[in-house]
Write a protein that binds this DNA or RNA. Structure first.
Lengths: 250, 250
DNA sequence: TCGGATCAGTATGTATACATAGAAGAGCCG
DNA sequence: CGGCTCTTCTATGTATACATACTGATCCGA
C-alpha cells in the first residue's frame, strides 16, 4: 500500500463525501454524479461507490428510484424525530447502566469528564476554543455513558443515529454560541450530566432514563431556536440538511 | 436490463448471502471468500462486494481487521440485547402513536389484523401452515403499529435492528411450535397486541410503551427456553447466529 | 405552435484486469 | 530436529473497460 497517505481510497472517498455533505457543498436533494465526485475526490469509481453504499445505508444519502444517489433532504420533523430517538436510546443506555451498576472506576472516569466541563463553564464568557473543548468533552461524556450500559448492540445503534450530524450529542450547540443565553443552556446541560451520573450511581434507572430523554430536548430546543432565527444558522454543521423534504410518509 | 430475471445482480447477491447466513450454510465466525461466493451465487465480484458492504453496515457480517469479511458471531447476551432494544424502540413507537393519536381508519386496519390472528388461535392445535400464517400476520401487526407512530426515522431504525433475524418480531416463535405450551404463549402475545391497541386508542402512552417492552420479553423467554433445550433448536431461523463470540467489550 | 418520436450523449451497473499485501509452505541454518 | 526466512500463491482493494438504460434535445408531423 502506498504509505504516503496510509489511508485506503475507500476511506478517503467516504470522508470526503461526508465532509462535502456536512458543509453543504453537496446540498440536500442534490443528485450525486459519480464521475464528478471521482475527479473531485481523486479516487476511482470503485471506492467511491463503496462509500456511496455505506452512506446510503446510514441514511445520509438515498438511492434514487432509477439509479444513482441523492443527498437526503430532511424536514424539520425528521430532525426532531432523530433527536428524540437519540434521547430514547441514550435514556435506555443510562437506565441499563443504573440497573446493572457501574464500577467505581468507571464512575470516576466519567466524573472526571464532568469536572473538566465544570472548569470550562466557570468562565463568564466562552470563546470559540472553549466551545470546541466543550463539544469534545461532551461527546466523550456521552460515549462514556453509553459504554456504561455494556451493550454493544445499543452502542452501535446510537452511533448510527448520530451519523446524521444533526443528531449527534453536540448537535446545534453551535447555535448557543451565538445566543446570549449560551452559557446558561450549557449549565443546564451540565446539570443533567451530573444528575444522570448520580442516578446511575444510586441505581435509579427510571430517573436516569428520564434525564437523558430530557437532555435530548435541549438539542431540540436549540433546533427550534435556530429555525425561528434562520439566518443565525448559516455555516453551522448539520444545517445543510435542513430542507423540507417534499413528502413525508403518513 | 436482462428481463430474464428482472432483478439486479446486486440484489441477487444480497439475497443469496442473507439466505446462506440465515440457514447456517455460512456459519458464525466463518471467513467469507469473495471468489468462492461469486461462483456459488453466479455473480461477479462487483455486485457481491456491494452486498458485503451492505450486510456489514447492518451488522450481519463484519470487516476483518486485515481485509475481508467474517460472518458475525453473536453471544447469548448479544441476542438478549438486540431483543430488548427492539422492545425499547417498539415501545417508543407505541407511545408516540398513543400520544399523537391514531385515526379510526388506521385503528380499524390494525384491529382487522388482530381479528385474523384470533381466528388462527381458536384452533386447539396449530399446524405448520397456521404457524406460518401467524408469523405473517404478526409481522404485519408490528409493521402497522410502527407505522402509527408516523416517524420514518424510528421505523428505519427498527427495521435495521430486525435485520438481525433473531431480533425480528417473530423471532423464535418457531421454538413455540415445538413446545407443549405453544398455543398459550401465542395467546399471551395476542393479549399484548390487544392491550397495546387499546392503549393507543385511549392515548395511554406510558402503558403502550410498557406493553411493547414486555411483549419483547416473550421473544427473550423463547430464546432462553431454546438455549436450555439446545437440540430443539436445529434448523430454526436465526439459530445459526448463536455462537458465543469470543470477547465482549466491557 | 405543440406534441411526439427518434437519436445522441451520458451515467450507472457489471465484469474483469491488475497490483499489493497477507498467508502458507518449503527450504535452509542453527 | 526445530525455528526462522524466503518464496510463492492467493485474496483483497483498486482501476478501468464495456453494455445497457435513462435523459435530453432536436426534428418532424399534425
Amino acid at each position: 500500500m502506498t504509505s504516503a497517505t496510509e489511508t485506503s481510497q475507500t476511506r478517503r472517498a467516504e470522508l470526503s463525501l461526508r465532509e462535502a455533505i456536512a458543509d453543504g457543498s453537496l446540498g440536500a436533494g442534490e443528485r450525486l454524479s459519480e464521475l464528478t465526485l471521482t475527479e473531485r475526490f481523486g479516487v476511482s469509481r470503485t471506492p467511491l461507490r463503496t462509500a456511496l453504499v455505506r452512506l446510503a445505508s446510514e441514511g445520509v444519502i438515498e438511492a434514487a428510484p432509477n439509479g444513482g444517489y441523492l443527498v437526503r433532504a430532511f424536514s424539520t420533523e425528521d430532525l426532531i424525530d432523530a433527536i428524540d430517538l437519540r434521547g430514547v436510546l441514550e435514556g435506555h443506555a443510562a437506565r441499563r447502566a443504573a440497573e446493572r451498576g457501574a464500577s467505581p472506576r468507571d464512575l470516576g472516569a466519567i466524573e472526571a469528564l464532568l469536572v473538566a466541563i465544570d472548569d470550562l463553564l466557570v468562565a463568564e464568557t466562552l470563546g470559540e476554543e472553549a466551545f470546541a473543548a466543550y463539544v469534545d468533552l461532551n461527546a466523550r461524556f456521552h460515549a462514556a455513558l453509553i459504554g456504561l450500559a455494556g451493550n454493544p448492540t445499543l452502542a452501535r445503534e446510537i452511533e448510527r443515529v448520530q451519523a446524521l450530524p444533526f443528531a449527534g450529542p453536540s448537535a446545534f450547540v453551535g447555535v448557543q454560541a451565538r445566543l446570549p443565553r449560551a452559557r446558561s443552556i450549557l449549565i443546564e446541560a451540565q446539570s443533567h450530566h451530573r444528575a444522570v451520573v448520580e442516578a446511575i450511581r444510586e441505581r435509579e434507572g427510571g430517573r436516569a432514563d428520564a434525564l437523558m430523554r430530557e437532555h435530548a430536548r435541549l438539542a431540540r430546543r436549540n433546533l427550534q431556536a435556530a429555525i425561528t432565527d434562520r439566518e443565525r444558522l448559516d455555516g453551522l454543521p448539520g444545517v445543510a440538511f435542513i430542507r423540507d423534504a417534499g413528502k413525508r410518509r403518513a
